[in-house]
């Protein structure tokens, strides 16, 4: 008992910080949404097809982005954690580089690469692979590529950490006991790095939900995410109660998804 109580004090500054910079604004925001003493703004957010559809779209995009980040990020994080220090450093530089450039710059770079007359299409056409440019930009594909690029580091780093934490003797033991690489991966690596995978997925998913610059620029305007609508309510319509209600709905939905995901990825216990 004593030790748990004394363990509380060092965490106090962090708790106060969270309280002031996270909890207080959230409560304030929730306050805005019921300012008028009614739940009318919630009724509008949940009742009008537009907002539910955009919310659904947003989750769909976030889910896909998370999936692609996982598919790319797991092998990358795994390789970085198991290769020589030189290649690990190179990997880190390339993975972290996007974090040091602004989202806008990265997005414009993709526009240069993916456009009708962009680098990719010119290469494909010169190589004779296609005669007409492939639409990579100003559609869903463009949004996916751009967002996956921006968010990949958030997937790679926790997975890298999780892989590094596994005692290399454990997969070796599995191999010695007759497991093929495929089975070592699914029976040993996957469950032992699930924490990292979960952390990476949650990070990428939640960050995806708040995106709007990248989808607006790379999606040709067709891909609408909830953050765009919230921003419109804050900056254009000046309807803060409604913006708050939309944010609250997004927050609640995010928590729901998080809880669900946690339930599913609970590390397997005694069988």
């Amino acid at each position: 008992m004593f030790s748990s109580r004394s363990g509380f004090w060092p965490a106090l500054p962090a708790l106060i910080l969270l309280l002031v910079f996270f909890l207080f604004p959230v409560v304030r925001m929730l306050g805005f949404s019921v300012e008028a003493g009614t739940l009318d703004w919630y009724a509008k957010a949940l009742g009008e097809g537009l907002y539910l559809r955009v919310l659904w779209n947003t989750f769909e995009i976030a889910l896909l982005v998370t999936l692609f980040c996982l598919l790319l990020g797991y092998p990358l994080g795994f390789l970085m954690a198991t290769t020589t220090p030189f290649w690990a450093t190179m990997g880190f530089i390339f993975v972290l580089l996007p974090l040091w450039t602004s989202v806008l710059v990265r997005t414009y770079a993709w526009m240069v690469l993916l456009g009708r007359n962009g680098v990719f299409n010119r290469m494909l056409m010169e190589a004779g692979i296609t005669s007409d440019p492939i639409p990579l930009l100003h559609n869903f594909t463009g949004v996916l590529i751009g967002m996956v690029h921006v968010l990949l580091p958030y997937m790679v780093l926790p997975i890298y950490g999780a892989v590094r934490k596994v005692d290399p003797a454990i997969p070796a033991a599995a191999a010695g006991l007759g497991a093929s690489n495929w089975r070592i991966f699914w029976r040993v690596w996957m469950p032992l790095t699930l924490n990292g995978v979960f952390a990476g997925c949650v990070l990428v998913f939640v960050l995806s939900l708040g995106f709007y610059i990248t989808p607006a620029l790379l999606g040709g305007g067709r891909v609408i995410m909830i953050a765009v609508l919230i921003e419109q309510q804050v900056r254009e319509a000046l309807n803060w109660p409604f913006a708050a209600a939309l944010s609250a709905v997004l927050l609640a939905a995010t928590f729901a998804v998080y809880t669900l995901a946690q339930r599913f990825t609970q590390p397997e216990t005694a069988r």
């Binding site: 003797a169 454990i170 007759g178 040993v188 069988r271």
Partner: peptide, 25 residues
Amino acid sequence: LPPARRDIGMVFQNYALFPHLSVKA
């Protein structure tokens, strides 16, 4: 032959038990 096909039982220094699996598993 790869380790998996050698049929050799090995006990590691730190045992290398699968921490996520029960004793039985």
